[in-house]
Nucleic acid binder design. Structure first.
Lengths: 346, 346
DNA sequence: CCTGTCATGAGGTACGTGCCTCATGACCTA
DNA sequence: TAGGTCATGAGGCACGTACCTCATGACAGG
């Protein structure tokens, strides 16, 4: 009776397939020296027994740990800093889980630096790379090269469609832009709305802009959209951009779909507009939290960096350990867009 | 040089402490037969080497899997159904992770049934119990008894403070109520606000009510609060309660802090009030999703059942595997309150 | 027939921990 | 001093998989 509840092991698979343990091992780990016909028998046995590689035993037996490398933009961007903090937190919590986590800062907005870092990854010491993608052809090629070397690439926050990245972890940025517009429209009966972005070279920023303008034009046609101005996710540059916007005709609202919110708040404060202009921003950081509390910011859309890191690590683990050939990888829960007002600040 | 990077093992701890492997094992697994002085030496060695039990090896070596039992209310409650769905999903995804997950339905609003189920848990087959607590003295006692038997108890969604539960996984329900009030106040300039609850025997419902009324009274004193009416998280009873509310003087808004939203929407529809009355509800379900789309509901506060199950499993794993005596358990990220409008529906 | 290549089998060790048995002293009590 | 309890040591097996070596038989081309 117990046999019915016991999980199948490689031995069971070998017996069921009528082959030796060595052959099962060759199939499971993609080693050469197995005829297609034989491999098919093994695959059948795996399916019929619903065999899953025992993750604990597998990790224990393999010499080296699973290693995941994060390539995260550097700079003053507070959101990226919180991503880094989340990585550190998880690395600490996962001590003893046979997972070695490395975070490497990459010069922001620099496709060449990102590509070079990806190209430099050694499959011997890296099972999976998690990157915040800058959309550029060289990056796409670097991802393809890494995949060929056997490194699974996962995009985080900003996706790189059309590449060989295995997965994207992040929010639906078009939906985020649409939500921002929906809120902005309800908060401002009418008027001019200023739009700030980090860089339109980032897909996530382009997608937010697309969603925002689509909903504004369709549902709130009376509003005039100004921008987008690029602040390159930098506080100083963002402050300058906002100051310039405030120098023009009066604004009813500002949507900052990038970072640099400390600069935004500073500019509003200096201009005496805090609380008078409706502000929708992205990412819960010290700056946006203070903005919400003081009333300078009305709503913050957040993508939960900690959850994103957890999800990225989970999919990385899945790629490195899973028998993706035999069982469909379970879809991780999508990252949801968090909305924060003053009252539900974490 | 490699030695510097290698993780410490029990052998290293034994050598460092100047004791045998057997003694280290006794200390690590809380077995008797070790003088306090000796145990202290071992603990020192563990700290100085930053030793962490290798989770993979540990799970592999122990005969049985980690077993987690969920005790979840039954009935027509759509949120509880989504909790159950999330449990099934995770159980499927964690095949091969040496984790056996059992979900047992418990008669809702019935402290006696919950206590009995907790008392019936056998520490031989259950490492951790995850319960949606009903606040009652018998439940508190059952939790205490389970803890004594060596079963770690985790509360989910609704907490049980003052008990020996090891952890609470869920949102800050007072903050949820405050957020609901803040939104309701901005949406309705003035008027009567009806309040619906599931049962005031549930701590989460009481806390939401407390947060809601506190903010309404402090920040929107012009509004009159009606209720709360209890709908016992049931569609029919909730519909009846709403119908009764709608029979009175006109309402500006309704806050349903419990379940039974299908009944709420039905009552609004029959009364011709869909879209005219501002409605704030809890939990993303088919009913509330449809309500958002149709305009019957304005905002939904959600607590992300999938994330809660994942968090509960993570803390359960931590309790069963962790050297809580030697390393502080890393605080899992709190569950955040999700806000959903029509435009950011997942 | 010889030699080489290839698919496969047989069998072993290692990973780090849990858990078991047995032996050995030290110390206490009657 | 004999018998008992107790703290500790020594050693070994098991868990399921990864990865290694070596042997064997089949089959091909020359």
């Amino acid at each position: 009776m117990d046999d019915l509840k016991r999980r199948a092991t490689v031995h069971d698979v070998a017996r069921e397939a009528g082959v030796s343990l060595a052959t099962v091992d060759r199939v499971l780990n993609g080693r050469p020296g197995v005829r297609g016909e034989t491999a098919e028998k093994v695959a059948d046995a795996i399916r019929s027994l619903d065999f899953r590689r025992d993750v604990s035993a597998s990790l224990l037996a393999r010499a080296r740990d699973l290693s995941v490398t994060f390539l995260i933009p550097d700079g003053s961007n507070a959101f990226m800093a919180s991503l880094n903090a989340a990585i550190t937190r998880h690395a600490q919590a996962l001590k003893g889980e046979r997972l070695s986590i490395v975070a490497r800062p990459i010069h922001a907005f620099d496709p060449a630096a990102l590509s070079a870092a990806i190209m430099a990854l050694d499959p011997k010491t890296t099972d999976c790379a998690v990157i915040v993608a800058t959309e550029h052809e060289t990056v796409r090629r670097a991802v393809e090269a890494a995949s060929k070397r056997g490194i699974a690439v996962v995009t985080l926050v900003s996706d790189l469609p059309g590449s060989t990245r295995r997965h994207f972890v992040g929010i639906d940025n078009v939906a985020a832009g649409r939500t921002a517009a929906s809120l902005m429209g309800r908060f401002c009966p009418e008027g001019r709305i200023g739009i700030l972005a980090g860089s339109l070279g980032l897909r996530d920023h382009r997608e937010r802009l697309e969603g925002f303008t689509a909903v504004m034009e369709a549902e709130f046609p009376g509003h005039e959209l100004i921008g987008p101005r690029e602040g390159f996710d930098d506080d100083m540059l963002t402050e300058a951009a906002v100051t310039e916007l405030l120098g023009g005709p009066p604004l009813a609202g500002i949507y900052n779909l990038g970072a640099g919110n400390a600069g935004l708040i500073a500019a509003l404060g200096k201009h005496g507009d805090s609380g008078r202009i409706r502000v929708v921003a992205h990412e819960l950081t010290d700056a946006t939290r203070n903005g919400l509390r003081s009333g300078a910011i009305d709503v913050v859309l957040d993508q939960n960096p900690d959850g994103e890191i957890a999800a990225a690590l989970a999919v990385a683990r899945g790629f490195a350990m899973g028998d993706s050939a035999h069982h469909p990888a379970p879809q991780p829960a999508p990252i949801e867009i968090g909305l924060f007002l003053r009252d539900n600040l974490r």
